[in-house]
Nucleic acid binder design. Structure first.
Lengths: 243, 243
DNA sequence: GGACGCACTTGTCTTATACTTGTCTACGAA
DNA sequence: TTCGTAGACAAGTATAAGACAAGTGCGTCC
């Protein structure tokens, strides 16, 4: 339960925009409709929309309506979102291809977080418009992974299938030279620079439940971090594709 | 010795905050709720909260509530600003060596932010215990840079010498292969992976005033980013050295 | 084609309620 | 004196519900 309703609505709208539910340049539902949909007053909905406008995500014209900003100048993701959502927002077709799906003994750095034992390891290739842009490996404890099927994790984001609610995440971003294996699946020369991102996702009670390693070709991806100084209302952190 | 109730409550709250029970930026239960929960009067709860406020751990706004202070953010921003400080903290001797100090026409991506014209460009090498660990280039408008001397920027961080107050910053993090030049000054093989971080720092009124490009050898550095899930609040962002 | 009206939108108010912190007084116990 | 309880009141915030002005799009009538 959130004490501040309009922030929750802003979050939800931000996510829906990021998912591409409202195409760029297209109209959002009117304030009255949103008000009815969220069962909130128009004032509250407006505050949410105005918050999004401050982020440059949407804009409004009197007598016309609210619409997704044509050029999201600083499209910023304040929450733990999926890269796929951003892809969809920029009009690219996301695709997931599962390379491996197996239960294995936890690798060293995974065991350090989850504890020793068997884990589900899913190796996956993410594509945008047919072009590979990320090799992702996800590990989760055996007891969580046992309810998942390979088809499921190929269809939609991993965490959607987990029977628990996720909390926050910590990720480290580093650079490396592509291994022969990664170079192969990403269709880049071996040894060329890649961004390596390791993420530890915890459940709402703080236990690490999901570990992942993302490898991005350097020429296609970069991280954007906003460091606000004065008003800590939102500190967006996200990733975006560079063209 | 008489047990002092409000100090005990303050201790308990401090621990709950430290455990992350209340995410940074999140509202705490109201004074009335805490009062009921601890079976103490509101005055006592208030004294506990005020003690935490004096420590800078929480803050309050009238009519709104108590929330975990945003201080960690500013801290990490400061940390980002001075990697050198981190080095010193870990017992390494930081050193700055100015490679270039000159006024030049703004390069393309700099001109895009600062506008065309002449800028001060400072190329610098950062060392830890004699080992180079970052090549940094800073650009700032000519009228700001004209009051700086080469000795000054070699002695202490760039922004300390600027006659204006800085606001927030946006930085992008990417990977690349080391150029021949960078490889040379960083003492790494040409073409080996490096982290490239470009930062746009704005003044308090939102004007970009400082642009910088940091190049780190991949084997020594990585970024750490915390991602909150549902709370649009504070996302501490920092960088640390890897072993 | 041009003028008009209608339905709908955002922008900007007011009024009211519930809840919050901020501050104060009065009183009791060790 | 110090610490605690109990309560009252002021001031601020979030939200609800609604009224009204102003702008937009569209169909209709002349």
């Amino acid at each position: 339960m959130r004490p501040v309703r309009y922030l929750a609505i802003a979050d939800d709208l931000r996510e829906r925009v990021a998912r591409g539910e409202f195409a760029a340049g297209r109209l959002l539902p009117s304030e009255s409709e949103l008000s009815a949909a969220y069962d909130a007053s128009r004032v509250t909905v407006r505050k949410a929309l105005e918050a999004l406008r401050d982020e440059g995500l949407v804009d409004a014209r009197q007598g016309f309506g609210w619409f997704v900003s044509a050029d999201p100048l600083r499209q910023s993701l304040g929450r733990l979102g999926t890269i796929e959502g951003q892809l969809a927002a920029s009009g690219l077709a996301p695709e997931r291809r599962v390379l491996d799906f197996r239960f294995v003994p936890a690798p060293a750095w995974v065991a350090k977080e989850l504890g020793p034992g068997s884990v589900l390891e899913v190796r996956r290739l993410n594509l945008a418009d047919g072009e590979p842009f990320a090799r992702v490996t996800v590990w989760c404890p055996e007891k969580l992974g046992s309810s998942l099927s390979r088809d499921e994790v190929e269809r939609s984001p991993f965490y959607e299938w987990l029977p628990i609610e996720l909390g926050g995440a910590t990720q480290t971003i580093g650079a490396a030279a592509a291994s022969a294996d990664d170079a192969d699946v990403l269709a880049i020369p071996a040894g060329s620079p890649v961004l390596v991102c390791r993420r530890i996702t915890t459940s709402t009670d703080g236990e690490p439940v999901l570990l992942s390693e993302h490898v991005f070709p350097a020429h296609r991806t970069e991280f954007v971090v906003d460091l606000p100084r004065s008003e800590p209302s939102i500190a967006p952190t996200g990733m975006r594709l560079v063209e």
